[in-house]
Design a binder for these strands. Sequence first.
DNA 1: TCGTGTTTGTTAAGCAGCGTAACCGATCTG
DNA 2: CAGATCGGTTACGCTGCTTAACAAACACGA
Lengths: 240, 240
Amino acid sequence: MTAAPSATRRERTRAATIDEIKATALDLMRGAGTVDVRFTDIARVMGVTPPALYRYFADRDELLTALITDAYDDLARHVAASGAAAPDDLGARWEAAAQAYREWAHREPERFALILGLPVPGYVAPEEGPTSEAASRALSQLSSLFVEALHADTLGAPYLREVDPTVEVCAHGKSEDLEVTLPAESFQAMLHAWAALHGFTSLEAYGHLDWMEPAARDALFGSQVTLIARVAGLPEPLRA
Amino acid sequence: MTAAPSATRRERTRAATIDEIKATALDLMRGAGTVDVRFTDIARVMGVTPPALYRYFADRDELLTALITDAYDDLARHVAASGAAAPDDLGARWEAAAQAYREWAHREPERFALILGLPVPGYVAPEEGPTSEAASRALSQLSSLFVEALHADTLGAPYLREVDPTVEVCAHGKSEDLEVTLPAESFQAMLHAWAALHGFTSLEAYGHLDWMEPAARDALFGSQVTLIARVAGLPEPLRA
DNA sequence: TCGTGTTTGTTAAGCAGCGTAACCGATCTG
DNA sequence: CAGATCGGTTACGCTGCTTAACAAACACGA
C-alpha cells in the first residue's frame, strides 16, 4: 500500500502500523458492506485503544482520504497490469482491461464506491487539476489503447461518425493533456466505451444484476465488451 | 409522496408530518451531498426536539427505508411520464426515457445513490422477489419499449447477434415475468442498453464528467443514446 | 359540556463514537 | 546517560441515537 523500503526502524514500524490500520479499515468495510468505518472498531480489532489511532491519522477524514488514494492506485495498477500478457494485441488488451475493471469492482464494491460512487463529503483531492482524479486515471488507461491503435494504424472508424462541435472542442482540449490528437469521433467513442463499461460494472458490483446466474453475467459482460470494441473501432482480438 | 386523501383529521396531519420529515431529510441530504442524515438536524430544521421524530419512524433505518421506497417510485414515475408526449414514437420515447433517467439522477444524485449505488446496510426491501427492486423497475420501463416495438414490428435486429446459451436461458426466465417472449438477442441488447445508459448517468451524476462543458456532456449523452438505440435495434425517432 | 383515552410533543437520561488533554514508559540520539 | 521524541495509555467533553417518564392537546362518547 504505502510501503517504501525506508530508512530507520521507527519509520518502518510506523509505515507498517499505518498499513495495518488501513487494512483493518478495509476489512471492516468489506464485512459491513459500507463505506463507514468506526475508529473504535478498528482499534478494537487491532487491540489498541481508539485514541492511539490519532497518532497516525488526524481524523476519520484523513484515513478516508488515504483509503481513497490507495483505491485509485490499486485500481489503476490492476487495470494497467491486465494487458501484460499480450502487449501487442490491442483487442485482447481492451478485453483484459475491461475485465480487470469489472473484476476489481466486483471484488471490492466498497472501494469502488469510494472512488466512483457518490463523492464522500470529507475527501479533498490532493493537488486538484481541472479533471477529477477518478475520471483522469480511468481515461488515461483507456485512451492509451486508442492512441496505440491509432499509431499502429489499426484504429477503425467508430460506428457513430457524427460529432457535436462542443464534444470536438472537448476532444482537442483533452488531446493537449495526452500530447496526441485522437480523431474527435474516436474520442467520443472512447467516452461511450467507458460509460458502457462503467455501467455494467456498477450494476454488477452493487448487486443489481444478482438476479442473473453468474455464468450469464459473465457472458453478458463478454458480449457487451465485444460490442463496445466493435462500435468504437477498436481492433478485434487476435484469435488463435 | 405518501399522501392518501385519507379520512380523519389526525391521519391527515400525521401524513403531512411524515412528508415534512422526509422532505426535510432530503433537503439536508442534498445540502450535504451525502446519504447520511442526522435526526437531530431534521428536528432542528423542523423546530421540534429529536425524540419527537420517533413518533413517526422507529429509527433512522426506517426513515431511510421510506426514502428509498419513495425514490424508487419517483424515478419510475419520472421515467414512465417521459414518453407521454409521443406515445406512438418508440424512438422518441426511448430518447425521452433515457433523458428522464439521466436528468433525475443528475438532479438528485443522493437519491440516485440511495437506490442504485452501494446498498445501504439498514435497508431491507419490502416483499423480496428474486429480482432486486431497482433492477426490476428500471428494466420494466425499458422492456416495455422493446416489447411494444416487437408488437409494432419495428424492432430491428440488434448489432450483435450472438447470444450465449446462459443469457438465452435468462431471457426466457425473465420473459415469464413479462408474459411475452422477446428474442434473446434483443433481450441481451436491452441489458446492454441499460448498462450503457446507467454508466453515463452514474458518471455524470457523481461529478466524474465535470471536466466537460455542460453542453458537451449534453451532446455526448445524445450521441450515446442514439448509438445505443441503433445497436439495440430500436426504431429511430420520427423526425419532423 | 365534561371526562377519558389517544396522540404528540416535551425533558431527562443512558449509551456509543469522535476527538482532545494530560500523562507515562520505551526508544532513539548526542 | 540525559534529553527529546514516539507511541501508547486513561480521563474527559461533546454530539448524536434512542428510551423512559411525563405533560399538554385533541377526539369523541356519555
